[in-house]
Structure formats: structure tokens, C-alpha cells
């Protein structure tokens, strides 16, 4: 019985986390940025390394390092809030007029749960993203990659405590990164 209870809890947790990620994507795509910020823990780390082409056997050099190297993003909530504020000024020309953005989130996998699936307080979840951005007339970007998120249970709700974004590009093919992953 205990095994079955745990299996059910695992299933429930997986759906719960998936729903959370879909809800988050919904807020971003619907441009409900302030509600999106509320999903982030105050101490959130938002990191997107750059990538290098390196030889097999030297793959430890593939990614730029969090907190040490230049990255695409390596920041906390303060800067993320300023990004939102900037979009909402209405004079941030790189996002004015606003882009049309669609986040496709898939391949959701729970990598770790602590202390237990029965009482999950922190989970590590990996997923794939495909972000479509279309702006002004014909300008279109498609960005594909992986995310690894830390989610924390706070007052009965999930908060994102860290996000690692791995974009499957080395030279960035988009002129800028004015949106959220």
C-alpha cells in the first residue's frame, strides 16, 4: 500500500509540476509579466550560459560558467524585474511594438524531489522549450533548448528558485534576447 501511495503521489507531483510550467508559459505568452515575476522566488538565479564548440574529451569547456564567465544571462530577481519594467515603459523599442511570443514546453522530467514525493518541498525539473518569436512584420526567431529548474514550495505554491537555460546555439542567431525563457 505504501508503494502505491508513493506512486500516486509521484504521478500527482508530475502533473502538478507540469501544470505549473504550462501556467508559467501562459503568463509569459499572455504578457502578464508582473504575475510571472510573482512565480519567482526572491532569491531566484536565472542563468543561461554561452556555448562553445569544443573537442570530444574537452566537453567541460563547452559551457561558460555561472558566476564566473560572461553568460547570456546570469542574474537575480532585481534585474529580471527591471527587464519587465523596461518592457512596460512603452519606449523599449526592441519590444515596442511587443513581439508575439509562444513558449512550447515539453519533455518534463522530475530529476529530484526533497524531502519526499509525499511532502515535496524542493524539486528539480528538466524540460525542453521551443520559443517562437515573431515581431513587427516578418521578423521571426525560433529558439530551442533545455531548461533545468529548481522549484520550491512556498505557502502551498511553487516558486522558481533557479533556472538554467541551455540554448542549442553557439553563435546566437537572434539579434537580441528581450524575452524570457
Amino acid at each position: 500500500m505504501a508503494d502505491q501511495r508513493e506512486a500516486m503521489a509521484q504521478l500527482f507531483l508530475e502533473r502538478d509540476v507540469e501544470n505549473f510550467l504550462y501556467h508559467e508559459a501562459e503568463l509569459l505568452d499572455e504578457r502578464r509579466y508582473e504575475e510571472w515575476l510573482d512565480l519567482l522566488a526572491d532569491d531566484v538565479r536565472y542563468w543561461m550560459p554561452m556555448r562553445r564548440n569544443v573537442k570530444l574529451g574537452e566537453l567541460e569547456r563547452e559551457f561558460t560558467r555561472e558566476g564566473q564567465d560572461v553568460n547570456w544571462f546570469d542574474e537575480g530577481k532585481d534585474t529580471l524585474e527591471r527587464r519587465v519594467q523596461q518592457i512596460l515603459t512603452g519606449v523599449h523599442w526592441a519590444e515596442e511594438p511587443l513581439s508575439r511570443i509562444c513558449h512550447m514546453i515539453s519533455n518534463v522530467q522530475l530529476l529530484a524531489v526533497t524531502p519526499s514525493v509525499l511532502e515535496p518541498a524542493d524539486v528539480t525539473v528538466k524540460s525542453r522549450f521551443l520559443i517562437y518569436r515573431n515581431r513587427v512584420e516578418t521578423e521571426t526567431d525560433i529558439l530551442v533548448g533545455k531548461r533545468e529548474d529548481g522549484l520550491r514550495r512556498v505557502d502551498g505554491h511553487w516558486k522558481i528558485s533557479r533556472r538554467k537555460v541551455v540554448l542549442d546555439q553557439s553563435v546566437l542567431l537572434s539579434k537580441n534576447l528581450t524575452f524570457f525563457f
Partner: peptide, 20 residues
Amino acid sequence: RQYYIRYSGPAGLTEQDDME
């Protein structure tokens, strides 16, 4: 380092508008 990347580059809050 943190200031540089929030200012410059494709994710930099300043340089983004230049590219547009």
C-alpha cells in the same frame, strides 16, 4: 561582470534597443 552583461550584448538592457 554582472553589470557588463545587463548592459551590453543581446541580453543587455541597453544594447537591445540599438540592434532594433
